[in-house]
Design a protein around this nucleic acid. Structure first.
Lengths: 218, 218
DNA sequence: TAGATTGTTAATCGATTAACAATC
DNA sequence: TAGATTGTTAATCGATTAACAATC
């Protein structure tokens, strides 16, 4: 029944999701989706097929069910708690960002080593704690994801601390290439690289449809 | 001489660059690079070969020259000016971020429609102007890149304004799928999607080496 | 010469697309 | 039945890897 969901598919599921949410009709065909998103229609069909096999010839796919299946495949319904290290400008922006909850991720608290930042309360009531209390906090709050938004020079140290706290997935917003054990996954979000990639594409007059931040190093 | 640089290669160049900068030796072999970055050594050789053909058997590549070639291929030496729309938390973080200049991108000014934000001076002396003065500013400052960090609901309007200002490359930090003409390139930087992708990979226990933000929609 | 390394050509692999049969 | 749509099998395409010849 359920085919293997490739990573390429996984990457497109949220795109389908956004699109499907905007539609109004009860049923929707892969042809419509493909045309609107400028993707091959067979590709769309294969993607949809790998999360749910319920398309009906001549009618299309049940929109509601499709949305539910995608949400399920993405694990949106499973709520996951995260913590953030580094309550600077970027950290604050992330703490106050509302979009994460839509995907079932809750950044519960920020941690910093700067006494001036500790105890600060964000606009939404979340708080900044001392980095020393990270372990205790993670243990009592079932934290699964760690977000690193500290200065480069501290990135590895903070990363090590997070791993000690049993965090197994790290979102790295610094430009530092973290060294991590095999059982931890890292996603690098290098904004400088990303903007630079756009610039390079512009200079070469190409579409930026590959992302330079996608590779894992070390 | 210079082979075609594929986009996949283009995405890896900055990774090589970071690594090469950290090294000390005069020459470096593709084998060393491959091992350190966990890439295939033939792949590294092909990549390096597409930007410069100066590897020497038994010796390796001249580190300095390699760095220079990569910088050149990436267009880092060509300085490009950008403007940012939306001086909120995220916008402020980007305005004050120091890493962009390393890749030859200078975000010169921020624009907003909120009177409370207009005329604000950032920590580094850059300023926020009224969105109404965007066109004039872009024309007199040769602005090539526009960064959108406004609320979703205003993203398209701001994008349209930027296109009127002759901006041909847009870095979109909202979750909105911008509709743009063919001669404009967009790079979507959807942070919610990115974090969500990490979460999904964690739940499925996979490495997140493909990035969901890489696809262009609409 | 032997060994380390580069660069090229062919094979493999994964993802996408094309062709077409199946279904309502 | 005809037409629209789905789902599958084979072909294509691009990128990576393997094998190996060339070079210092």
């Amino acid at each position: 029944m359920s085919l293997i969901i490739t990573k390429a598919t996984l990457g497109r599921l949220p795109v389908y999701l956004e699109f499907l949410k905007k539609q109004k009709t009860e049923y929707i065909s892969s042809t419509q989706i493909a045309r609107s998103l400028e993707l091959g229609e067979v590709l769309v069909r294969k993607d949809l097929n790998s999360v749910c096999g319920l398309g009906k010839p001549k009618i299309g796919y049940d929109r509601e069910k499709l949305i539910a299946s995608i949400l399920d495949a993405l694990g949106v319904n499973k709520n996951i708690s995260a913590v953030l290290a580094g309550a600077g400008q970027l950290g604050t922006a992330l703490m106050e960002y509302k979009g994460f909850s839509e995907y079932g991720v809750d950044i519960k608290a920020a941690f910093d080593n700067d006494p001036k930042k500790i105890d600060h309360t964000f606009a939404n009531g979340k708080k900044t704690y001392s980095i020393d209390s990270l372990k205790e906090y993670c243990e009592s709050n079932e934290i699964k994801i760690g977000i690193i938004a500290v200065p480069q020079s501290e990135a590895q140290a903070v990363c090590n601390k997070m791993i000690e706290c049993n965090i197994r997935a790290i979102w790295n917003l610094t430009t530092y290439s973290l060294v991590i054990p095999d059982n931890v996954i890292v996603k690098n979000e290098n904004l400088a690289l990303s903007l630079s990639f756009l610039k390079t594409c512009m200079l070469r007059n190409e579409e930026p449809d590959i992302d330079s931040t996608l590779r894992n190093e070390d």
